[in-house]
């Protein structure tokens, strides 16, 4: 966003988002100070491991934490000039499934087992188009099923989720999410439960539909390959914080955060020669109830000692121009380490 422009907001803007859950074991700091934005027609990939806060972020955008009495959400979520954190439940409900929609990881458990797939799509359509009669809604649902590539949509309309194959089920889920032409589509690990060949089909479908509808897409995944396939921008999350973000090409070619290096070093890749050993991040992800002091990554970071105690005491800020990173290491040193120590082992 250039400085001279009028104070036009990005289509989706998240500012200093915090999500906390009060549990019997203590306060879970699921998301801390998350800030990012997304324009229409663009895809943002959010990468991270379990407990990194990536799913919680997306649920917060949809306001799905509102029904959990132990959840505290603060910060700002602007969708098309409307602030959602301070909005009423009813305002957010009207946007949910309408202007913003979501698809989930496991389409079998995400669809109600007792209602037909068709009726669940019709329901999604009619709640946002109250005037529409059943017949029109039914036609719309069948049309959507056909659009996402489900053969014999008229017949499949009356089937239940368990009668669909995994891939077809996820297609139906996508049809349900897109039935109201949402401007923002959040896909939470949409292909994790699927086989690779089916995953390829679904990613293809999401890409095509995005071109067709021009919506903004948030793709949440642990699979760097999936992000690289779809995303324009990438957000890497760790311990509830955004630790690196930037254009996909930059993040993959010049990753800046040691955790991102670790992620890349962890995955064997078909497009490279076979390495003798993988270079994983040591240790395990932190507990969100007892986050380490300072940089949350420092207990697992091989370079944490290089800046005196700063990593142990001071939380690094997310800094940078287009490509931002939250790391105490000076930029030059990071580049050096990456070129000399990390890149040759990827």
């Amino acid at each position: 966003m250039s400085i001279g422009a009028t104070n036009a907001r990005p289509f989706l803007e998240i500012k200093d988002l915090n999500v906390r859950f009060e549990t019997d074991d203590g306060i879970v700091q699921a998301v801390t100070g998350s800030t990012f934005s997304l324009e229409k027609g663009k895809t943002l990939g959010i990468v991270g491991e379990s407990g990194s806060g990536k799913s919680v972020t997306s649920l917060a955008v949809l306001g799905l934490h509102r029904t959990r009495s132990n959840a505290k959400v603060s910060g700002e979520i602007w969708l098309d000039d409307e602030e959602l954190v301070s909005a009423t439940d009813e305002q957010v409900r009207k946007l949910r499934g309408g202007k913003m929609a979501m698809i989930f990881q496991d389409p079998l458990s995400a669809m109600h087992p007792y209602f037909t797939v068709g009726s669940q799509i019709v329901e999604a359509y009619r709640v946002h188009n109250p005037g529409v009669n059943k017949k029109v809604a039914r036609e719309r649902a069948i049309d959507m099923l056909a659009r996402v590539g489900i053969p014999q949509p008229e017949r499949r309309f009356n089937d239940y989720a368990h009668q669909f194959s995994g891939g077809m089920r996820q297609r139906a889920m996508i049809a349900m999410a897109l039935v109201n032409d949402p401007a923002l589509l959040i896909a939470d690990e949409p292909t994790t439960a699927l086989d690779v060949t089916v995953q390829a089909q679904i990613l293809d479908l999401i890409r095509d539909l995005q071109e067709e509808f021009g919506s903004a897409v948030i793709m949440i995944t642990h699979d760097l390959g999936v992000v690289a396939e779809l995303a324009d921008d990438v957000l890497v999350m760790y311990g509830g914080k955004v630790i690196e973000k930037g254009p996909a090409v930059d993040v993959f070619q010049q990753p800046q955060h040691p955790y991102t290096w670790g992620l890349l070093g962890s995955m064997p890749r078909l497009d490279r020669e076979v390495r003798d050993r993988l270079n994983p991040v040591k240790g395990s992800p932190p507990s969100l109830i007892n986050l380490p002091n300072g940089c949350a990554f420092h207990p697992r970071c091989p370079y944490a000692g290089r800046n005196g105690d700063r990593s142990f005491t001071e939380v690094p800020e997310l800094r940078g121009d287009i490509h931002k990173v939250a790391c105490h290491l000076p930029a030059e040193e990071r580049t050096k380490i990456f070129q000399q120590e990390v890149l040759p082992n990827l």
Partner: peptide, 17 residues
């Protein structure tokens, strides 16, 4: 706590439904 209840909310259904 089921996924499909979350889906129902994500569709924008009222809490009553």
């Amino acid at each position: 706590g089921e996924d499909y209840v979350r889906t129902a909310r994500a569709k924008g259904l009222t809490e009553r439904v």
